[in-house]
Amino acid sequence: MAGTVPTGPDAGATFYHGTRADLAVGDLLAAGRASNYADRTPLSWIYFSAALESAVWGCELAAGEGRERIYIVEPTGDWFDDPNLTDKKFPGNPTRSYRSRAPLRIVGEVESWTPHAPDVLAAMKANLERLKAEGAEIID
């Protein structure tokens, strides 16, 4: 219905998306890109969070060689809890992680944030590799 405002959990919050893509305010992040965490199959959802910490993980774990970036985004359609985290790892969604089939509009960039310590990041990457080797489905 034209003119309806997109809705979802944490409506009104500031939302973030961590990546290595070099984008600009006004650009759209959309589903259909390869996953950073699985077999690089195009995803039917775009993922984001209302927690800066989750976006830090997103950009640090993103594939590619580009600079780590955290964009401030605005959903253009309805969004939902991310079941990859909320149902499987963190019931109640304390990571404030969401997904949408509609694009996210970039409205800004977080210029300064604290990265994880190298040993913490290495441990997370090793854990993801272990899960992948065990055949775990990391992302839906």
Rank of each mutant, 00 (worst) to 15 (best):
L61I: 07
K132M: 05
D81H: 14
G8V: 05
A11N: 12
E74Y: 05
D39K: 10
L23R: 15
K89F: 09
L104H: 02
E137R: 14
D119K: 06
E129N: 12
I106S: 04
T76I: 01
E65Y: 02
D78C: 08
A38P: 00
A122Q: 13
T41C: 13
T19F: 03
D82F: 02
M124T: 15
A117Q: 14
I46C: 13
A51P: 00
G58M: 05
P75V: 11
A136M: 14
R69K: 14
P9T: 07
A31I: 05
T14M: 11
L29A: 05
P91A: 01
A55L: 05
L61D: 11
D140Y: 07
G135L: 04
T41V: 15
N127Q: 12
R99G: 04
L131I: 00
N36I: 01
I72S: 07
N36F: 03
Y37H: 13
G58N: 04
G58K: 04
V120I: 11
V110L: 11
A62W: 08
E111R: 15
G58V: 06
T4N: 07
A30N: 09
G108F: 01
R130A: 15
G92N: 03
H17D: 05
D10S: 09
I138T: 08
A50S: 15
R96A: 12
T19K: 03
T19W: 03
I72A: 11
Y37C: 10
N36W: 02
G92Y: 02
D87F: 01
F90K: 02
Y47W: 12
E74N: 09
L85R: 07
P9R: 07
L23T: 02
A122G: 10
G58S: 05
G18E: 04
D119N: 09
D82M: 01
I72V: 15
M124Q: 15
Y16W: 09
S44E: 14
F15L: 04
T7I: 10
D39W: 07
R96Q: 10
D82S: 03
L128N: 14
G77T: 01
F15K: 02
W57D: 14
Y37R: 13
H17Q: 08
W113Q: 10
G26E: 10
S54N: 12
A38D: 14
D119Y: 06
Y47M: 08
T7Q: 15
Y16F: 15
C59Y: 03
I106P: 01
E65W: 01
T19S: 15
A51D: 09
I70L: 05
R67G: 10
S97E: 07
D78H: 10
